[in-house]
């Protein structure tokens, strides 16, 4: 019966036009999460309520950059994921510093972006030419990249350029300059997804690669571009983090899982076909604030990670039910209860 039931949701009530237009934004839940965690921090440590938010705004932009790239890849549809972003960040931090010392900080950051793209080229070749599943392909890429990182770390004798360091720490009216720049990047990505051939093509491929191919979209080119952009974003984040923190072989480690979690919490469909760029911000702020809160109350890193994992699952269930785009288990449960109640009425009445 399971196979036959699968066609039923095609015309289910979720699909009514009105409901979609008035629906709660996909990033709404994560925004509520941000406000709730912020409120908790203020309760735990009263005084200077805007401090934790300002602190989060200095850390979140890097995570947002990585998450935007990850979002493009995840939007390509089932199975698409880039698990190499963490190691790319670490490698790019060394590249940024080494090239920066020789040719100036701008060249350093550009070289970091280039290193990210080069790593993504490995993934793209494996995915498109060798037809390796993306999770395996990007895992292989991350092994290559971490070896390269170790070589770079052995040769590294430099530290980040002072100018670049000043740039990533600069503030305008108390707001980090980097946050404003990443906000601009986010807006560009959001507009690109809605109004360009590339953006719409990514979303079409994510809904159904077969249908997109028959509609005349070059699926391979779109897939390649999305992974390359993801690599570029990770490289950029790494190049900037080199100056904000310092190059390290474990600099990017936490970004791999965090970027995926942020994308999902932000409202992007994990099954592809719907990207929510604004959600990268609400998701990243939520994550950074949550870490701050848990550090404040003295949770260990291990316990924090367990909570993050639970949160990701909870958010997938709740947000899918709330926005009505995916039929989550919660929505199904609700439908079942409604039917049961109605049946009770009819049998009694």
């Amino acid at each position: 019966m399971s196979a036959t039931l699968s066609t039923a949701p095609l015309t289910s009530p979720d699909a009514s036009p009105r409901r979609r237009r008035l629906s709660w934004p996909a990033w709404g839940w994560s925004l509520i999460g941000v406000l709730a965690v912020w409120a908790l921090i203020v309760v735990v440590r009263p005084g200077a309520p805007f401090d934790p938010l300002a602190q989060a705004l200095t850390l979140a932009p890097f995570l947002v950059l990585v998450a935007l790239g990850q979002m493009l890849v995840i939007t390509l549809g089932p199975g698409n994921i880039d698990v190499s972003v963490g190691t790319i960040i670490s490698m790019a931090s060394y590249v940024s510093v080494a090239v920066g010392a020789a040719a100036g900080p701008t060249a350093g950051v550009l070289a970091a972006v280039g290193a990210g793209i080069a790593a993504a080229v490995c993934s793209v070749i494996a995915i498109l030419l060798l037809r390796v599943p993306p999770i395996i392909a990007t895992l292989a890429t991350s092994l290559i990249v971490s070896s390269a990182t170790l070589l770079l770390a052995d040769a590294s004798r430099h530290s980040a350029d002072a100018g670049l360091r000043a740039f990533v720490n600069a503030k305008i009216l108390g707001v980090p300059l980097i946050a404003l720049l990443v906000l601009a990047v986010t807006i560009v990505v959001a507009l690109m997804l809605r109004h360009t051939r590339f953006g719409l093509s990514i979303i079409a491929v994510g809904q159904s690669a077969r249908a997109a191919e028959r509609a005349g979209i070059k699926v391979w080119a779109i897939t390649a571009l999305a992974y390359l952009l993801c690599g570029a974003f990770a490289g950029l984040a790494g190049g900037l983090l080199a100056a904000f923190i310092s190059p390290s072989t474990v600099l990017g480690t936490s970004y791999m899982l965090d970027s995926i979690a942020v994308v999902v919490i932000g409202g992007t469909l994990i099954s592809g076909g719907r990207a929510v760029a604004a959600g990268a911000w609400t998701g990243a702020l939520f994550f950074v604030l949550l870490s701050g809160l848990l550090n404040l109350v003295g949770w260990s890193i291990g316990a924090q990670n367990i909570l993050k994992g639970v949160l990701v699952v909870a958010v997938v269930v709740v947000s899918a039910a709330a926005t009505g785009t995916g039929r989550s288990s919660l929505a199904r449960l609700r439908d079942t209860l409604q039917i049961r109640n109605k049946n009770k009425e009819t049998t009694h009445g």
Partner: peptide
């Protein structure tokens, strides 16, 4: 291999015609 299920009628209808209604990739 036909419909793009998350999209509206208009988006489904115009996806193949993007070349004709865009300039420099912007629609």
């Amino acid at each position: 291999s036909g419909i793009l299920p998350l999209w509206s009628v208009a988006e489904n209808l115009t996806i193949s015609a993007m070349r004709g209604i865009s300039r420099l990739g912007i629609i």
